[in-house]
């Protein structure tokens, strides 16, 4: 049994009075493809965002690669700790969040160059390889405003990969896309999965979740309601809430 790359224990998160996460325990093994599903408002995004500390934790522990993520530290030290941590965790957002003042290539090279991961020339070389990998070699010099949603999202994935992360977080990365553009982004994620990148994928696209993941977590009301391999969670759910959720989604 390998040591999990992400270990979450007793995680609670409140926004003011609102309890969003009510005690989550979770282990993610290296090379595992995690799908996080559940109704809107169940806390999927919040859970994802606590892992790289875009959201602070109210209670509990998050461990990443053997290190406590939410350590109490003085301000400056905490910032350094988080920057270090985040270099190893890539994140892709629903609305891409590409840097509009930079070309596709510059979006990808920005962090590796600023953080001195590589020389400028190496970073450009690497970025071209990554853009090629996501099928956008010919769009390197385009600004985001001239890319389609699907292309933007693929640049965003390349940008995250440029820091050679050990874990990738995807938060509904195809939800804002026109249906005909979903496939091209899903294909890139599937390819990453086949290369054994460790991934946590929040998605409403249950067919994709079943297809790509090797572990599914169904969240309801700030708690893990059911989890297991996709064959079990999707085909033979144990919990009533899971059944109700699946029924509702597949009816739509």
């Amino acid at each position: 049994m390998t040591e999990p790359i992400v270990k979450i224990r007793g995680l609670k998160k409140n926004f003011g009075q609102l309890e969003v996460l009510k005690g989550i325990d979770m282990d993610i093994e290296p090379r595992q493809i995690f799908a996080l599903i559940g109704a809107s408002g169940s806390g999927k995004s919040t859970l994802l965002r606590t892992i790289n500390q875009l959201e602070e934790v109210t209670e509990g522990e998050i461990w990443f690669d053997g290190e406590l993520v939410n350590q109490k530290l003085p301000h400056r030290q905490r910032e350094r700790h988080l920057n270090q941590l985040r270099q190893n965790i890539g994140m892709v957002f629903q609305h891409f969040n590409l840097f509009p003042h930079l070309t596709a290539l510059e979006n990808v090279t920005l962090a590796p160059v600023l953080l001195r991961r590589s020389s400028k020339a190496e970073a450009i070389e690497q970025a071209k390889i990554l853009l090629d990998k996501v099928g956008l070699a010919d769009r390197a010099d385009y600004y985001p405003s001239r890319l389609s949603g699907g292309q933007k999202q693929r640049v965003a994935i390349a940008r995250a990969l440029a820091m050679t992360p050990k874990l990738m977080l995807f938060d509904e990365v195809t939800s804002a896309l026109d249906p005909e553009l979903v496939g091209e982004v899903n294909r890139v994620m599937k390819e990453l999965a086949q290369e054994h990148m460790t991934m946590i994928i929040v998605t409403h696209d249950l067919r994709f979740a079943e297809d790509v993941s090797d572990h599914v977590v169904f969240m309801a009301d700030g708690l893990v309601a059911e989890q297991g391999p996709p064959s079990q969670v999707f085909r033979a759910p144990q919990e009533e809430r899971t059944k109700a959720f699946l029924q509702q989604v597949f009816e739509d």
Binding site: N83, L85, F93, A111, L114, M163
Partner: peptide
Amino acid sequence: VEKGQTEAGSCLGLAHHQVMSRIILPQ
């Protein structure tokens, strides 16, 4: 400037001042 820009920069591991000078201020 959208909050998502700061988040995207922070997520890459950039320091606060780098996010400001390279991402937020140019926009």
